[in-house]
Structure formats: C-alpha cells, structure tokens
Design a protein around this nucleic acid. Sequence first.
DNA 1: ATGGTTGGCGTCCAA
Length: 281
Amino acid sequence: MDLTPRPLGLKSDDTLRLVSWNINSVRARIHHVEHLIETYQPDVICLQETKAMDDVFPSKIFQKLGYEHRALHGQKSHHGVATLSRIKHTNEAKINWCEKGDARHVQVDVGGFELHNFYVPAGGDEPDVTINEKFAHKMQFLAEMETWAGSLNKPTIMLGDLNIAPLEHDVWSHKALLKVVSHTPVEVEAMNRIFKAHDWVDAVRHFYDDDSTKLYTWWSYRARDWKAANKGRRLDHIWVSNSLKPALKDATIATNLRGVEKPSDHAPIILDLDKSKLPDA
DNA sequence: ATGGTTGGCGTCCAA
C-alpha cells in the first residue's frame, strides 16, 4: 500500500513551500533534514521536539543549506521548536504557555502572514485530569490556545505537533482509540473550540476533503512493522486563516521520511502556497 | 496478548 497521500508537483517559483515536522531530536536526525531539503526544497521548515538548547542547535548546517533566518526556542533534553527560513522573517516571539517555561512555541512574521509553530503536550497515558497531571497540562494548554486563537487579528498560519487526531479517519481505528489519549472526545472537543475561535481552514485535510480518506502523520516506534500494520494517527496539522484560503495550492504527508534508517516517528507535512495570492509581506 | 521502541549530558523519564 502506498502511504503517501499524493505526491507534490514540482515546486515552481511562485510557490511558497512550508514544512512542519516533529523530528524527535534535530541532532540525531540532521541527515534526515538534509534529505528532506534535497527532496522538497522547502522555503520554511518548522521543527518540533528538537531536544536541543539553542547553543547546540546545528545552526551552521542550516545556514549552509540556505536557511539564513532562524527562530530557535530550545530546551535541554525535551521539547524545543525551531522555524528555519530561506526568506526573511521578523517579529520573532515566544509564548510561555501554562506558565511552565517549556519550549513549545515560536512565532514569526513571514510571507505576509503570522506563523506559529507549536508542540502541544502529549498528555501522558490516562485521559483523566484528576489523576494525570500531564493530561491536565494538555487540557490547560488547549484552553489557552482557544483564547489565543480568539485574539488573532492578522492572516495567520498555525502548525505543528498538536498531539490530537480529531477526525474518525485521522486514526487507524476510531473505535479502538476513543479512550486513547490523542483521540478522546474531550480532546477533540477542545481542539474544535480552538478551530471555532478563529476562522481556520485545515489546510492538509482541505486537499483530501473526502472525509473517508485515512490520513496519518505518526506511526509508533513500537510496531514491529509500522508500514504493514499502518496503525497511524494524524497528530500534526497546518491550519490557515480563511483569508489565506485562496493561496492554498497543495499539501501532502512525506511518508518516505518515516521509512528511512533511524526515522522520526512522525512524517513531515508539507503545504504549498501561491505567493501571488498571499498578502504583501 | 497492557507488549512494544526511541533519544537524552540518561542508569529512568517522556514520548
């Protein structure tokens, strides 16, 4: 079975290509980044779970590959996000979600929109806020995102590892996962509230709008054969303001990068935007 | 079948 939803067409000069990828350690997988860049030539790369402080982030390698503009929000051992760009970005900022000091967000202005790169807490094993502090943290994070989304007043793209698979066909088995953190109704409802708090478009599902199409971005390391089992979940997302909808060109999930040696457990997700239909930068 | 694997300044934790 071919897991790639649909290959992207050749990248043309009028395309702005965005990638979001939970890389699970940027240092362990720097060659995978090089492979991603060779294959797709993205203009902007948003990474999550970089697991590296800014002083050990492989900035020189990205510089050499043409990503001169970097917004790093790193943390030792855990979390960490980074937005790397070939085009100039401005107004770099970080939000301290849940007042925990975790490196789970970085934003920039680029390409005529605000770009927010997120790593939402996974939430632990037990979907019960009264006994699982990690799940309580996840729910609080989502509540803060709802308020944040309601306050947006510019064309915005938000993306990253949101650690929720909202739709029935965003998981391999809706029924089997109803009580599994990432697909519980309480999480999906919280995600839907964020979706309603701003005029969002789910930019990846937009190109596969037949809701019966299974789309996954993550496959557990624990499966003997991830591809054969194909018990995936769509945990990674790109949402764009409705005002940016005319610029949407194509999207895909780069499952080839889940199949390489020592892969991340997440595949990159890729969005192509029509530069001529974006607001002036 | 409640297992299984991965990365990190790590000898367990979080994912």
